[in-house]
Design a protein around this nucleic acid. Structure first.
Lengths: 106, 106
DNA sequence: TGAATACATGAACAACAATTCATATATACA
DNA sequence: TGTATATATGAATTGTTGTTCATGTATTCA
């Protein structure tokens, strides 16, 4: 046991999943959607309007997040409201944000 | 200890940087390199051997991480040792890992 | 010097991912 | 029913990214 404390034995498979998971945060459109949903659920059209994006773009990215179970849709009439569906999302977002803000200070 | 992530006013520019930052973690090769370096510095050839990757692949990815100041090279003779150069990397890695492991449990 | 070793890098290629555009589906309401 | 609204989705296009291959640079040592 000459390993340092932070090092863990992690399978190749898990590391792959981990990188796949971080990919969801590695796109400007998706991170903006995630950021928006941190304050609560919102309909597709509202997201599109707020972010000044085409509805199609938002729907496509929501599908990616939905497939990964990061967001959850709820229909109400014609509208579909999306909410974050993972308790870790805010934590990860904020951890990354702390890094960026810290870096900005120099 | 706040649980709910409060919505913050974050500039478009910062959100873009944030997504760019997460991209570094969104690649299997890079996440494996990062994981390896969590246990301490290591030479390029050692990384390549340990991960069973071409030296060229490792060098290319190290350049990306180096440019982003996520790793720091130190030359010792012909070898160049790379170490993580950001205190947040381990935190972000582990936060994401916790999510993956939690998800695996069901 | 010259050869060997360690690493970096540029260009080409292939794989992948995001957006656009057109269209499809589902719902509400007249 | 028919029309308008809200969202989803497929296909094509474009842009981006990772790997491969070949080669270049730096260092050591004989």
């Amino acid at each position: 046991m000459k390993k340092e404390p932070m090092m863990q034995n992690i399978s190749l498979d898990t590391l792959f999943e981990l990188s796949e998971f971080f990919k969801f945060f590695g796109d400007t459109t998706r991170i903006r959607v995630i950021h928006l949903l941190l304050s609560g659920e919102m309909s597709v059209s509202a997201i599109a309007e707020k972010l000044n994006l085409e509805q199609s773009v938002v729907s496509h990215q929501l599908r990616i997040l939905r497939t990964a179970n990061l967001v959850k849709p709820t229909r109400d009439g014609r509208k579909i409201y999306y909410a974050l569906d993972d308790e870790h999302i805010g934590e990860i977002f904020n951890t990354g944000l702390a890094h960026i803000l810290h870096k900005k200070k120099g």
